[in-house]
Amino acid sequence: MDRFFGHSATTQGITVRVAVSFLPDRSRADNARWFWSYHIRIENHSDQAVQLLTRHWVITDGRGGVHQVDGEGVVGEQPVIQPGKAHDYVSGCPLNTPTGRMEGVYRMLRDDGQMIAVEIPRFPLVAPAVAD
């Protein structure tokens, strides 16, 4: 696995890889706002094309508060991923705590008409400690 992507999960031949980065320039600890970007790579190792139709995210902050996000596609697209190909995108997540985590599910339609739920691996959101 590419070392850049620290988290991965595979469901029915579809591998979802995640790399996460804390963005200090978009974060304000004095306003209880921390921000991360995450880079997702979806690889199709199956023998059929798949179309990513919807996403479901479960975002948990450092106090255990849970926020769920549902929507169509990813960053305005519902990509079709051919066998042996991949789709990459980058998005972001703000939290009101310096730690948390994200995980979720993509709903994808295979060429044979079967709808599958593809796991998005859990990944931590951790702001680096700030020295006093």
Rank of each mutant, 00 (worst) to 15 (best):
Asp2Arg: 12
Arg3Gly: 08
Arg3Asn: 14
Phe5Cys: 06
Phe5Asp: 02
Phe5Thr: 02
Phe5Trp: 12
His7Lys: 11
Ala9Glu: 05
Thr10Pro: 01
Gln12Val: 05
Gln12Met: 10
Gln12Ile: 03
Gln12Glu: 14
Ile14Cys: 01
Thr15Lys: 01
Thr15Asn: 02
Arg17Ile: 00
Arg17Tyr: 05
Val18Ala: 08
Val18Lys: 02
Ala19Thr: 08
Leu23Trp: 06
Asp25Asn: 13
Arg26Lys: 15
Ser27Trp: 03
Arg28Asp: 14
Asp30Asn: 12
Asp30Gln: 13
Asn31Val: 12
Ala32His: 11
Ala32Leu: 12
Arg33Gln: 13
Trp34Met: 03
Trp34Ala: 01
Ser37Phe: 05
Ile40Thr: 02
Asn44Met: 05
Asn44Pro: 04
Ser46Asp: 05
Val50Ala: 01
Gln51Asp: 06
Leu52His: 00
Leu53Thr: 12
Arg55Tyr: 03
Trp57Asn: 04
Trp57Ala: 04
Val58Arg: 06
Ile59Pro: 00
Gly62Lys: 01
Arg63Gln: 13
Arg63Cys: 04
Gly65Asn: 14
Gly65Ala: 13
His67Tyr: 12
Glu72Tyr: 12
Gly76Glu: 11
Glu77Trp: 11
Pro79Asp: 07
Tyr89Pro: 00
Val90His: 08
Val90Ala: 12
Cys93Asn: 11
Pro94Gly: 07
Pro98Lys: 05
Gly100Arg: 00
Gly100Thr: 01
Arg101Gln: 11
Tyr106Pro: 00
Asp111Gly: 10
Asp112Ala: 13
Gln114His: 15
Met115Asp: 07
Ile116Arg: 02
Ile116Met: 11
Ile120Arg: 00
Pro121Phe: 05
Pro121Trp: 04
Phe123Gln: 04
Val126Ser: 09
Val130Pro: 03
Val130Ala: 15
Ala131Phe: 11
Asp132Asn: 15
Asp132Phe: 13
